[in-house]
């Protein structure tokens, strides 16, 4: 059973700037532990000869030429913005 401590949950929450209640910490502790355990199945295999995978597709160099395309009109840029100040997005003070 993969373990994740309460402190680890709080640390990750702080990195993500998320505030959690005590109940949520307990809930995520369990859920994250389950995820880790599922993933840790992989370590049951001997993978010492397998190079790390960065991507499941066997392709490389998917790129585009450096040619501009139209940008979004401002009304679409701000369509979902909770707060706007002129042509700027406005957020709480950082």
């Amino acid at each position: 059973m993969a373990r994740i401590t309460r402190d680890e949950v709080l640390h990750v929450a702080r990195l993500a700037r998320i505030e959690l209640s005590d109940d949520e910490v307990a809930k995520f502790q369990e859920q994250l532990a389950n995820i880790l355990e599922a993933v840790s199945k992989v370590s049951e295999l001997d993978l010492s000869d397998v190079p790390p995978t960065a991507h499941p597709l066997e392709i490389a160099n998917a790129w585009a030429e450096d040619v501009p395309r139209d940008c979004l009109p401002l009304d679409e840029v701000f369509a979902n913005a909770p707060d706007r100040d002129g042509d700027y997005f406005r957020t709480p003070p950082a």
Partner: peptide
């Protein structure tokens, strides 16, 4: 493929990728 340059009005050189709209996917500049 938004323009990379100075001088545009604020947020005039943006698109779903660089604004991180859900589902938008990056394509590298060769």
């Amino acid at each position: 493929r938004c323009r990379n340059g100075f001088g545009g009005e604020p947020n005039s050189q943006t698109c779903p990728v660089c604004l991180a709209f859900p589902g938008a996917l990056p394509v590298p500049n060769r």
